[in-house]
């Protein structure tokens, strides 16, 4: 029996994983969600901002990471628009332009936010570090127009925003090394407050920055998105997907335990 388990066709495991996803998707079960301190810190920071404040939201990810980052982006945008906090959307990743503009438009339609008054999407400029440093002096020197080609001077919410001095917080939604770049150039050089929402792959790299206060908050993958939706009391894909994810994690943990038991039993027999 255990020998058979050691030689199991990997495609059977694929089928088990797919079933562990499909069954809870069709029969949703709500498991309790506890909110971590870094997620709560970001939520409370935005909640404490006075109405009319401006934050910058960087969509530094592509379609390959939308499963983890779109739910948290939606929750953040909803919170900002509900709190009357203005949002400047930008991206350092070319693939982020379509993601960012579509997402902001979608949430603006839901909440009634107005383009140019409550939000603006500036789009993409190449040169990561140079873009960040340039905006520290003058945003209009890097983005003369928004993504739709409208000059910044003609956008009402940008009339009093020149550089980072007028921006209360930058939130970097990242699937790569962009958060480190924002910290290195915008936080160190211009003292801009930074928070991040990141994919599971890079969470571990972010904790040292959280511990030093270089990040004032952190949303970690799909679990963090579910926590944020819980804080806003606005259940959406984050909560739905983390419940499904829990079943897959149970399956994977079970397979790891069974695999190890089978391995050690077989090795003992061979000895």
């Amino acid at each position: 029996m255990l020998e058979k388990l050691m030689d199991i066709d990997r495609r059977i495991i694929f089928i088990l994983v797919v079933l562990a996803v499909i069954i809870p998707t069709l029969l949703p079960i709500n498991l309790p969600i506890s909110v971590s301190a870094p997620t709560r810190q970001l939520h409370d920071y935005i909640n404490a901002l006075p109405a009319g404040s401006t934050i910058m939201l960087a969509f530094d990810y592509g379609p390959a990471s939308l499963a983890e980052l779109n739910p948290m982006a939606k929750a953040l945008l909803k919170q900002c628009f509900d709190k009357d906090v203005r949002v400047i959307g930008i991206t350092l990743a070319p693939e982020g332009t379509a993601m960012g503009s579509t997402l902001i438009q979608e949430i603006a339609d839901e909440t009634g936010a107005i383009d140019g008054e409550d939000y603006v999407f500036l789009g993409y400029r190449p040169g990561e570090e140079l873009v960040i440093l340039g905006m520290g002096s003058d945003i209009a020197s890097v983005f003369e127009t928004d993504y739709n080609g409208k000059p910044l001077a003609d956008i009402p919410m940008m009339t009093n925003v020149t550089n980072y001095d007028q921006i209360s917080l930058l939130i970097d939604l990242a699937s790569g090394s962009s958060t480190e770049i924002w910290i290195t150039y915008a936080n160190v050089r211009y003292n801009l407050q930074i928070a991040a929402g990141v994919t599971g792959v890079i969470i571990s790299q972010m904790y040292p920055y959280l511990q030093t206060g270089q990040l004032i908050g952190l949303i970690s993958g799909i679990a963090g998105a579910a926590e944020y939706e819980t804080l806003l009391d606005a259940p959406a894909k984050g909560i739905l997907w983390i419940n499904i994810e829990s079943f897959v994690h149970l399956l994977i943990a079970g397979l790891v335990v069974i695999g190890n038991i089978a391995f050690f039993v077989q090795r003992r027999k061979e000895e």
Partner: peptide, 26 residues
């Protein structure tokens, strides 16, 4: 311990991608 934590988080991320695609298909 650091690598284990990173691997666990990576698994979480990759499973989330699968869940999103299955959600799309269904």
């Amino acid at each position: 311990i650091g690598f284990g934590s990173a691997f666990g988080n990576t698994v979480m991320g990759r499973v989330a991608l699968l869940i999103q695609r299955v959600d799309f298909l269904l």
